[in-house]
């Protein structure tokens, strides 16, 4: 059934029989460009893998578990950056998830049409703001606010917990997590909205007819039916947070260290590459390329999983 008229311009059997040289050339050319996209992905992996060979052969898999970072003695480990990446992404997801999914539910289920189009456009415009602009805003607005108001307030009240301990730096995991939360919000909201709009109208009406409240309909029908779409939204947002660079490098404080406190400065895999690559030489360059390779492989896996899930949920 997939092979019928709308699968191409002509049925495959006719197409194969076509002797028009122009068509053959045209098919060859478009296929070539399509293959170029596939080749680019392969080339990305290949290129980064070759460039990071010195680091790969020197440190092996122990690289992932080592915390040393000393360009002078040539000792490098990835753990602080893996920690920074996971900590900022987890914080961002925890902050953005309820807001993004809640906003999506409000926009699909409750908002009148004009509110939906205004708020919907504004949320999507969040995705259009360049990440360096978020970084700039972070450096001059968010970080001072955190250092002088928010973090002292939190430390005073919740300082007994190790996560909220330590001096209020401003720059650190907390600031980066907040900025990332803003940046992944539109991804979360728009993918969730798509999944929620795909839920059949009749199911909502059936439950309403049984006397359910609007919230009960949202919980029992919309959120439940859209669950795999919500998972896809979460994974896509996570992928974005893991690789986000500029906003993070500007507010995270850039220190290759692991601290329990979310107010402490740290580094992510992406931020250390942005910060150090142009000054690095020799082995350090290979180490940063290996971090890039790890980031690439993780993002390929995360995005493939998310796309496959999203494709299944809207079908």
């Amino acid at each position: 059934m997939a092979r019928e008229l709308r699968t191409g311009m002509l049925p495959p059997r006719v197409r194969r029989a076509s002797i028009n040289w122009g068509d053959r050339a045209f098919h060859g050319i478009t296929t070539g460009f399509a293959l170029l996209i596939a080749a680019l992905v392969a080339l990305l992996v290949l290129e980064l893998a070759t460039e990071s060979v010195p680091a790969l052969s020197r440190f092996g898999p122990g690289f992932l578990a080592s915390t040393s970072w000393n360009p002078v003695t040539g000792e490098f480990g990835a753990l602080p950056f893996i920690y920074g990446t996971l900590a900022t992404s987890a914080l961002a997801l925890a902050l953005a998830w309820p807001i993004g999914v809640g906003a999506a539910a409000f926009l699909t289920e409750l908002a009148p049409r004009f509110v939906r189009s205004i708020l919907g456009t504004m949320v999507e415009m969040l995705a259009a703001v360049p990440s360096v602009v978020y970084g700039l805003w972070g450096v001059f607005v968010l970080v001072p606010l955190l250092r002088e108001r928010v973090e002292p307030w939190l430390i005073e009240r919740l300082g007994v917990l190790p996560v909220f301990s330590g001096p209020p730096f401003g720059l650190g995991v907390f600031a980066a997590g907040l900025l990332l939360a803003v940046m992944i919000l539109p991804t979360l909201a728009s993918v969730s909205r798509e999944a929620m709009s795909a839920v059949p109208r009749g199911q909502r009406e059936a439950l309403l007819a049984l006397g359910a409240t609007r919230w009960e309909v949202i919980r029992a029908v919309v959120l439940a039916q859209a669950r795999s779409g919500l998972v896809a939204a979460t994974v896509l947002a996570l992928g974005r947070a893991l690789g986000e660079t500029m906003a993070t490098v500007m507010v995270i404080g850039n220190s290759p260290s692991i601290n329990v406190s979310i107010f402490a400065p740290a580094s992510t895999m992406a931020s250390v590459i942005a910060n150090d690559f142009n000054e690095a030489t020799g082995l350090q360059k290979a180490v940063l390329l290996e971090l890039g390779l790890i980031l690439l492989v993780v993002s390929l896996a995360v995005n493939t999983a998310a796309r496959l899930m999203a494709a299944r949920s809207t079908r």
Partner: peptide, 29 residues
């Protein structure tokens, strides 16, 4: 042409995946 072939969906998936590759990694590449 890609409809109904095996290459088509693969290229579509890779294109979406390429869209999600961190841009700093593209810079390194």
């Amino acid at each position: 042409q890609g409809r109904g072939t095996r290459l088509g969906p693969l290229v579509r998936l890779l294109s979406d995946v390429l869209n999600g590759v961190p841009t700093i990694v593209v810079g390194l590449f």
